[in-house]
């Protein structure tokens, strides 16, 4: 997602300044990125907004996929999965593994493996998720804060497992040719194809999830359990297995998010944890468990970050976005699309 931004930084000739430190301690070079707004022509600004907008779309897609997974779990059980980022990383590593295996054993399958890898990532994460639910989450039922802490413990373990298995260095799967490059409808404007692909994937998953929730019998059971757990149990819905499936589904979607992530960045053991706070905010800011809300807030957060990142130096764009969301949540804690169930 940084690609387009970096090209533009390069064009606008950033003034970089490395400090000479006598102490020899490690420092970040201080980079002056942003010339004043006046120095851009109208044309430039238009292109910047468009390009950062498209860069934001990749971020939006990943955040949306992360948020959807979290929202399914949070909506179903009122539980926050702190290891959700690690499930995303698990998905990404699965794709990486598929890529390596394909290159090794079936190079001719190279151009197509990615589509299959997405499904495998989903299945692997869903299976691990189901196991985690069985071993851990169901034993912590009615203790949402403790679940949050226990899943954080899990995230430590998963991160270390990634580090031991794949090493501390970031890995990138070989992406098929058709995902590379960009489409230029006019000069000075490049739309990356991987971004469009990821967007398509996120939209497809959202629709599939909506269909699943509102058309399948499992979706019906799931929604019934959310609304009245006791009653659902009484009418013969096995709420335990609904919980397990919901958790697995949420983790599986995180796996797809991981697959999407590989097209826009490289995967390291702590890749997931970098997105987790944003993903939480997507869910909370969208309004608990509202799919529409997740969609709107993922879009807002991703675009704000992406565009602000260009005009403000370093992490200030992210800080500004997060700050606005936190203040908004303090004023309106129910989020954008609150659930309209009568409170008890």
């Amino acid at each position: 997602m940084q690609g387009a931004a970096e090209t533009l930084f390069f064009l606008s000739a950033p003034l970089s300044f490395c400090s000479a430190r006598p102490s020899g301690a490690l420092t970040l070079p201080h980079i002056q990125l942003s010339p004043p707004m006046e120095s851009y022509s109208w044309e430039d600004l238009q292109n910047i907004f468009l390009m950062q907008g498209f860069a934001g779309i990749s971020l939006f897609s990943v955040l949306l996929l992360m948020g959807l997974g979290l929202a399914v779990i949070f909506g179903q059980m009122g539980v926050i999965n702190m290891a959700h980022g690690e499930f995303m990383a698990l998905g990404a590593y699965t794709v990486y593994l598929c890529s390596t295996l394909t290159a090794e054993y079936a190079p001719s399958f190279g151009p197509y493996y990615f589509v299959v890898a997405i499904f495998i990532a989903f299945i692997v994460c869903a299976l691990v998720g189901a196991a985690v639910e069985w071993l851990m989450i169901r034993r912590l039922y009615h203790r949402p804060l403790d679940t949050l802490l226990a899943t954080w413990g899990l995230s430590l373990i998963m991160q270390q497992t990634f580090r031991s298995t794949f090493g501390a260095r970031e890995v990138t799967p070989t992406l098929p040719e058709w995902l590379m490059g960009s489409y230029s409808p006019k000069e000075g404007l490049d739309i990356p194809i991987n971004g469009m692909f990821v967007l398509g994937l996120a939209i497809a998953v959202s629709f599939a999830l909506l269909l699943f929730m509102y058309k399948s019998s499992f979706g019906l059971r799931l929604r019934a359990t959310v609304q009245n757990r006791k009653m659902s149990g009484a009418v013969g819905i096995n709420t335990n297995s609904v919980d397990r499936l919901a958790f697995a589904l949420g983790c599986g979607i995180a796996g797809i998010a991981g697959a999407a992530f590989t097209t826009i960045g490289s995967t390291g053991p702590d890749s997931g944890s970098r997105y987790i706070v944003d993903a939480f905010l997507v869910v909370v800011f969208g309004g608990a468990a509202s799919l529409m809300g997740s969609l709107a807030s993922a879009f807002g957060i991703a675009q704000a970050q992406s565009i602000l990142e260009f005009f403000l130096e370093g992490t200030k764009g992210k800080v500004a976005t997060l700050l606005v969301i936190v203040v908004a949540l303090m004023i309106r804690p129910q989020g954008l699309f609150p659930s309209k169930v009568r409170a008890h």
Binding site: F74, G78, V79, P144, V277, F280, L322, V326, M330
Partner: peptide
Amino acid sequence: VGGVYFAIITQAIALILSL
């Protein structure tokens, strides 16, 4: 606001300040 929400928002504040 309480419970899980409070935990997440305070976590976001920690991220904001450290960044």
